[in-house]
Design a protein around this nucleic acid. Structure first.
Lengths: 250, 250
DNA sequence: CGTGCAGTTGACGACACTCAACCCTGGTGG
DNA sequence: CCACCAGGGTTGAGTGTCGTCAACTGCACG
């Protein structure tokens, strides 16, 4: 089998410094999935026959709900391993759907390879643990924020995501992220998210072009993340009520 | 070394059906910690030199916060493995404190034993994965509930905890659980939790004696868990619709 | 006998959710 | 070519849930 994206793949923490033979074993039967925006990789409820390693782009892991109000449980970024915990319980089903955000590449690896080469590889298991630990920490951190004002939650979410894309352009989130998705990941309503972010746009803290969010004044955002929680609330803040005529600067 | 609580320990899923020699290796250097109510096992911020397996009772894992508003990230019940993810990253510190709720017993196992016997044991690793999976699922489930009314969150929390203590008396939660702890685990205020639960007490759904909560009418609680979310809100319930003006045509 | 913790209750108010519009853009089919 | 629609973003009005503050009870403990 030939891997077209070998260079990117070998660059991931997970595969760095592996001998050719070891690498070969790890990607046995693997498939490079090139996903278009919105395309689904694993659908919730279907039998988990493979797991994935994100190579490029991002995936949202969505927990389906009986009606409308889905929840985004995690944004998987390059290097993230998804659905791996399921590999050791035979017959498991994916508990969440994974859906691409923007053009993404995922290495899809069959369960058999997991049992054969991943599960028994100590160094891999260690990466694994690290990955899980990060994800758990994030979930816990979010849990600790339920009482915080919405603006703080959004700011934290943005900063966290940008940090995960460490390197390159420090202040652009290089994936299409709608306000709806932010809302679903935070357990808020779209409207509320919009109100907060529109306010930031007006103040020039951030700007959005084509679903791609750029942070213009990181220090302001960080300030909100730290959140004195009592003094500023993000949408009204301490703005002076000049009758500004709503010109959109785009 | 002599283990006083050997029978209870051997009964745990994790240690069932292990040969004496394997078991011996797994508990090498282990210590049986008998904890009093409120006693701390691991303190957040201290170096993680050991992990634990809950044998009896329960522990709350508390994420400390700069001031007052701590967050309970997990209630560990018998069979739960705690701090194990930390064992594979040397020099890590406990991210949360673990504090006993009521009289509890924990098997405290040193890091060295983890590296020697746990990490390399496939069957153990599998248990591990299962444990983590459960915990992740719970965190995710909770995340999906942020928009639900408080009454629903509390009901779900109670039912989940009782289920984890499967067996024995179906409707009693055999650990002291204060309303404060419920609040901290749900990200709510004590007062709000009290308002909901007092209401349930008054209606005879639950009763509390000495911090131990008993569910008297499980079906009612389950009904709240399912939550039609629009019809009942828990504290006022569906008490007589005295010509309520309230005509919401949806 | 004071202190501290758990539980309780009431008043008040704010943040954010719901509902209901509306704009804009891009895609699709008549 | 244009009408229509869907999806993303935006805004305003109204309202409800829940958090904050404050006071008070009962109980265990030293």
């Amino acid at each position: 089998m030939s891997l077209k994206f070998l260079p990117q793949i070998r660059q991931l923490e997970l595969f760095k410094d592996r001998s050719p033979s070891e690498f070969e074993a790890l990607v046995q039967g693997a498939e490079e999935k090139v996903l278009k925006h919105r395309q689904c990789l694993f659908a919730a409820g279907t039998p988990a026959s493979a797991f994935g390693v994100v190579v490029k782009g991002a995936l949202k892991l969505v927990r389906p709900s009986s009606e409308g109000d889905n929840t985004i449980v995690h944004f998987a970024t390059p290097g993230d391993i998804i659905a791996a915990l399921l590999m050791s319980t035979p017959g498991a089903e994916y508990p969440v759907s994974s859906i691409a955000m923007g053009h993404s590449i995922v290495l899809k690896i069959p369960r058999s390879t997991y049992a054969a080469s991943w599960f028994t590889n100590a160094s891999i298991q260690k990466c694994f643990g690290g990955n899980l630990f990060t994800r758990m920490s994030q979930l816990q951190a979010q849990k600790a924020m339920v009482k915080a004002p919405l603006s703080r939650k959004i700011a934290t979410q943005l900063v966290t995501l940008i940090e995960r894309y460490s390197g390159e352009n420090e202040n652009i989130l290089p994936i299409p992220l709608t306000r709806m998705e932010i809302a679903e990941s935070l357990g808020a309503s779209v409207e509320s998210v919009i109100r907060v972010m529109s306010d930031w746009s007006r103040k020039g803290y951030i700007s959005t072009t084509d679903q791609v969010i750029e942070i213009l004044e990181m220090d302001k955002i960080i300030e909100i993340v730290k959140g004195s929680s009592r003094t500023k609330n993000g949408r009204s803040g301490q703005e002076q009520p000049i009758e500004l005529p709503q010109f959109r600067q785009r």
